[in-house]
Amino acid sequence: MNIESYVKFSKPFIDALRDTFKVMVQSDITPHSPKMKKDNKAKGEVTAMIGMNGTVIKDGKDQEFNGMIAFSFRKEVYLKIASAMLMQEYKDYHEDVEDTGSEIANIIMGNAKKVLATQGYKIGMSTPTRVKGLDYEIKYPGNTIVIETTITCAYGDFTFDICYRVT
């Protein structure tokens, strides 16, 4: 799959991210140029991931596909985003904000799914997962190219990774 296909596939996710941040984080976002990720390392202390699988109509036939999106945040940025979403200031990790990244991933996937359905994708969502810690190796589905996009919001930068493959 070439980068153009990825960009087209990524667009509903970026649009959903923009909408979610505007409505729930009260921030605009600026996505930077997407690039191919060269390793599997998370780029922040908090990473939220959600898998997807399903079918896509390609060349007139239903074909199976799977993929994943992941968001990685530095702790400081994560806490500021969580504080904005929960309308309460969090200066350190707290159980209230443990799954904020997962909730963002869940909302993005749910909204992108609707748009991708109009392009022939029938997507099943997995339950989001999250990890904390630097140098975490994200387990992307095998044989996929991962496209990484740095996103700037009012609280700093974070990364958005997306990968998928038709099987």
């Binding site: 969580a82 929960l86 309460q88 209230d96 904000v97 443990e98 904020t100 997962s102 909730e103």
Partner: peptide, 11 residues
């Protein structure tokens, strides 16, 4: 099931 969303709605 998400703490975050419960807190948002509660808030």
């Amino acid at each position: 099931d998400m703490n975050t969303m419960r807190k948002i709605i509660k808030g």
